[in-house]
Design a protein around this nucleic acid. Structure first.
Length: 116
DNA sequence: ATTCTGACAGCAA
DNA sequence: TTTGCTGCCAGAA
């Protein structure tokens, strides 16, 4: 927030964080789903970019609940230890096997359908 | 101003 | 089924 150069970017980042914080405990969603919900369906990579900077925020952002569309933990290297993301998910009862969410379909939470 | 690079996704082969 | 290429759009250099 402090010194963001471009306001539009700040808005986009803020929206990504807002949606991410709405992901229920024990559920996960995908980068694309968030981008789609924000009306920018082809900007999934921007969602990842936003989450990459989420650690600069003071509030808690459950970025570990966001994986790619196949349920793969593609962002695990952006958490302190490369096993941290899996740990955080395990704490919520989400099983991970070979970097992939087990029972991805059942745990999946789509902001488009879950929210209005 | 220009080029490179992503925590992605969709589609062609 | 898997791999590879392309579109995406900002930040960083």
């Amino acid at each position: 927030m402090a010194h963001r150069k471009d306001k539009t970017i700040d808005d986009f980042f803020t929206r990504v964080y807002a949606v991410t914080k709405l992901i229920p405990y024990g559920r996960i969603t995908s980068y694309g789903a968030i981008a789609h919900y924000l009306g920018s369906g082809r900007s999934a990579r921007m969602v990842g970019w936003a989450l990459n900077a989420c650690h600069t925020r003071y509030d808690f952002i459950p970025a570990h609940r966001v994986v790619n569309r196949n349920g793969l933990l593609t962002g695990k290297h952006h958490f302190g230890n490369s096993t941290t993301m899996e740990q955080l998910l395990a704490n919520e009862g989400i099983e991970v096997e070979n970097d992939r969410i087990v029972n991805f379909r059942e745990k999946y939470w789509d902001p488009l359908t879950e929210l209005h």
